[in-house]
């Protein structure tokens, strides 16, 4: 596995009130690679994803021990600016969630919030982000139209473009294609493959075929534990833990 790591998770425990959802997770996420998180419902993979940009902070009665190091710095340390952190570690959700604004304003929203006022630079950024998200050609003539007029697949790529507009290092994706048809899914998967040249991507997916198709490394979670983490090739061809094999071959779950 790749030696240059963007994230390093150390002894991570996470609790929803008294329920322990993650148990002693240790994991290194390589830079500019796609890391897939798989496992049955309730295994902790989405919870884990949300710990990477402190999205769980928004849920009441949760607490966490351990460390999540982003470029060597613990994101749970005191005085960490969470807004700044989420700019660096963006997130795309299962359901496309564009703002009820124009396509242009959806992309410009983040950079504006972070203080970019220059119109030319803003426009440049909008175009660049839409191009990176492989959406520009489809929407270039209607940037002022509502984002809600786009198809589901286009909306999801818009959300990816919106995440890219604030120039993140890491993109977290929580089942980004599960609400899309096969054609839109293929476009998202192609896009993810292109994006890894510039971003480190962590993706939660229920589709094991998708994990196998798009990711470089795969982590298998079960009941809050990281059972196995290896190259995707190894996980799907010859996993070393029987529980991983039982899960991916459908012998339980």
């Amino acid at each position: 596995m790749e030696n240059q790591y963007k994230l390093e998770v150390k002894n991570l425990d996470f609790y929803y009130d008294k329920f322990q959802a993650l148990n002693d997770i240790n994991m290194k996420v390589p830079a500019k690679k796609i890391t897939a998180l798989i496992g049955p419902s309730g295994c902790g993979k989405s919870t884990f994803l949300r710990t990477i940009n402190r999205m769980n902070d928004l849920i009441e009665n949760t607490h966490l021990t351990g460390e999540v190091l982003f470029d060597g710095n613990n994101i749970y340390a005191e005085k960490v600016d969470v807004v700044e952190l989420r700019k660096k570690i963006g997130m795309v959700f299962q359901q496309p969630n564009p703002f009820p604004k124009s396509i242009y304003d959806n992309i410009a929203y983040g950079p504006r919030m972070h203080g970019l006022k220059n119109k030319e630079k803003l426009e440049e950024l909008v175009v660049e982000s839409l191009k990176k998200a492989a959406l520009f050609d489809e929407v270039k003539d209607r940037l002022d139209k509502s984002a809600l007029s786009l198809s589901g697949g286009q909306q999801q790529r818009l959300c990816i473009a919106r995440a890219l507009a604030v120039k993140p290092d890491i993109l977290l994706m929580d089942e980004p294609a599960s609400a899309l048809d096969p054609v839109a899914t293929a476009k998202i998967e192609d896009l993810i493959a292109d994006l890894k040249n510039n971003y480190s991507i962590v993706i939660v997916t229920h589709s094991m075929q998708q994990a196998a198709r798009v990711s470089d490394n795969t982590a298998f979670f079960l009941m809050g534990e990281l059972i196995e983490y290896d190259t995707t090739e190894t996980i799907f061809e010859n996993p070393s833990d029987q529980r991983t094999e039982d899960y991916i071959t459908g012998r339980f779950g």
């Binding site: 094991m208 075929q209 799907f236 061809e237 010859n238 991916i248 071959t249």
Partner: peptide, 9 residues
């Protein structure tokens, strides 16, 4: 069926 691991082998 897109088999994997032992099933694919």
């Amino acid at each position: 069926q897109q088999p994997v691991a032992i099933d694919l082998r």
